[in-house]
Design a protein around this nucleic acid. Structure first.
Length: 257
DNA sequence: CTTAATGTTGTCTG
DNA sequence: CCAGACAACATTAA
C-alpha cells in the first residue's frame, strides 16, 4: 500500500510527536536489529519529522530514525491509523501483526503494523541514496533522472520506479502517471522529447495532487482496471499487461502507444 | 490450488 | 559497467 502519498500521511500522523522522548522500544528485528543491549532509539528526543520519497524520517537530538513501511506496513499513534479505508485496514486492528512498539515518556506510543514484515526502521539511514522527491522534482531534475539524451535502453517506468533517481513513486502511481501523460511506460526513457518530459512533469504533479486529495495511491483512473481483462477507462480498449522494471504494468495500447 | 500483490535488496546472468 | 530476472521476506485475497 504505501507509496509517497501514504508515507506523507504517516508523517503527518506522527508529527505531533516532535518534542517527545522515546523511553522504550520493543519488537523484533527492526530498530534493535539483533544488537546486544539497549535499543539505540531509547532516550532520543524527536525534533522534527521529514519525508523523502517513501522514507519517513524522525530527526532526534542524536540520531535520525528512518521509518520505511515496505509494502504492507502502517504506523499507528496510540492505536490510531492515518487511514480508515486502507487496503489492509481491516487487518490493522489485528494485534498479531504489531511488529514494533515505541513508548514515549509522556505515555504516547507508536506502533508498526506489518503483516509481511517488509518494513524497516533504521538508525541514521543513508539519505543520499534517494533522488529528488517526486512532489518537488523540477523539470530539469526529471530530465536528468530519465537520462534524456543518453543511450540507455531502460524503460520509462523502470526509471520512474528507481528511487535513486526519483523518490516516492511506486507501481500504482507510476502506471497512473504514464496513463495520464499518454506515455507508453515501456518506451525508452532516454528517448523522450523535451515536450514529453514537460507533459510528464506536469502529470506527476497533477496526479499526486489529485490522488492526495482522494486520500491515497489507489484512487487513480486505472485502479479498477488493473485486473486481467481490464479495459482502458477512456477508450475501452483491452489494457496491455506486462512486466516492466520487475513490476506488473497496465497500459492502454491505443492511448499510450 | 495457484497466482499475484502498493517494496527493497542482493545475487546472478547476459 | 548496465539492465533484467529472480529470490527472499510473510500473508492475504482473488
Amino acid at each position: 500500500m504505501p507509496e509517497l502519498l501514504e508515507v506523507e500521511a504517516y508523517r503527518r500522523l506522527l508529527d505531533p510527536l516532535v518534542g517527545a522522548t522515546i523511553s522504550r522500544v520493543e519488537g523484533d528485528h527492526l530498530v534493535c536489529g539483533g544488537a546486544v543491549g539497549r535499543c539505540p532509539a531509547e532516550g532520543l528526543t524527536i525534533t522534527a519529522t521529514r519525508r523523502i520519497g517513501k522514507l519517513l524520517l524522525l530527526d532526534t537530538d542524536h540520531h535520525v530514525l528512518g521509518l520505511h513501511a515496505g509494502m504492507t506496513g502502517s504506523f499507528l499513534l496510540d492505536g490510531v491509523s492515518a487511514f480508515d479505508a486502507l487496503r489492509y485496514a481491516p487487518a490493522v486492528a489485528d494485534r498479531r501483526f504489531i511488529r514494533l512498539r515505541a513508548e514515549m515518556t509522556d505515555g504516547r506510543c507508536v506502533e508498526l503494523h506489518d503483516p509481511r514484515r517488509l518494513a524497516r526502521v533504521t538508525v541514521d539511514p543513508d539519505e543520499s541514496r534517494l533522488g529528488p522527491d517526486a512532489t518537488t522534482i523540477t523539470v530539469a531534475e526529471l530530465r536528468r533522472a530519465l537520462g534524456v539524451g543518453s543511450t540507455s535502453p531502460t524503460a520509462l517506468k523502470a526509471r520512474l520506479l528507481d528511487q535513486a533517481r526519483i523518490a516516492g513513486l511506486g507501481n500504482l502511481l507510476a502506471d497512473e502517471i504514464c496513463f495520464q501523460a499518454h506515455l507508453d511506460p515501456g518506451r525508452r526513457a532516454a528517448a523522450l522529447s523535451g515536450e514529453e518530459v514537460t507533459v510528464l512533469h506536469r502529470q506527476i504533479g497533477k496526479t499526486l495532487r489529485a490522488l492526495g486529495r482522494r486520500g491515497g495511491s489507489d484512487g487513480g483512473a486505472l485502479q479498477d482496471a488493473r485486473v486481467r481483462g481490464g479495459v482502458c477507462p477512456r477508450c475501452g480498449t483491452a489494457l496491455e499487461r506486462r512486466t516492466i522494471g520487475g513490476r506488473t504494468t497496465f497500459s492502454c495500447p491505443v492511448e499510450q502507444g
